[in-house]
Nucleic acid binder design. Structure first.
Lengths: 96, 96
DNA sequence: CTCTCATATCGGACATATCCGATATATAGA
DNA sequence: TCTATATATCGGATATGTCCGATATGAGAG
């Protein structure tokens, strides 16, 4: 777990929002026509108003920090929070 | 407490190092000729190899995020960890 | 007031981050 | 194959971050 990468990933309000949305997919992504158990597909995040390419880059940053996991199913890529990594990061902040 | 400001402040390895050093002043700043109870004076941080102006800017970033407190005594400015703010930030990460 | 020392701020160079539209890649289906 | 859809990557514009040396500010000593 690379502290620097994680903290830089969190140092952007939208990326934190994305993580927050992923805590309650049924609340924030009810419009998705795939079952939410698979995760939330990338396109769903374009609601934030940014372009598709920007959204993709933000998701890549979160994935690069291991804060989310990705799973490709067909033409879609589904994102889920990586609760283990998030918990590990949180506990690593004990010695901040 | 502004999450964004705090996370951006932490998103630099040197600033995290500075906070870490301040956890054990007697261990890392034994060369200081002022009593460490007052805090660690800014000049002590130039050991990191950066210029005086860069060090000052990093300390200002930490202070701006309320992660450290400052206290001017004479010509010196002493820095201490703001344990309350740090704890508040840590606990706020519960809902990350 | 002047000199000195500690710290802060300024201006500019350079690196990184953020955003977009355009294009590439991957997969599915006709 | 050819086409359509979802996502990723590229190239470029602009913003922010980081660093430095130079200069300004603040405070004590003479």
């Amino acid at each position: 777990m690379d502290h620097d990468v994680v903290l830089r990933a969190l140092a952007h309000p939208l990326r934190r929002k994305m993580l927050e949305w992923l805590k309650e997919p049924e609340r924030h992504f009810s419009t998705q026509d795939h079952p939410l158990e698979m995760g939330v597909c990338a396109g769903q995040f374009e609601r934030c108003g940014l372009s598709q390419s920007s959204v993709s880059a933000h998701l890549a940053t979160l994935a690069g920090a291991d804060l989310v996991t990705t799973r490709r199913v067909g033409q879609w890529v589904f994102y889920k929070r990586n609760e283990d990594a998030i918990a590990a990061f949180r506990s690593s902040l004990s010695d901040l």
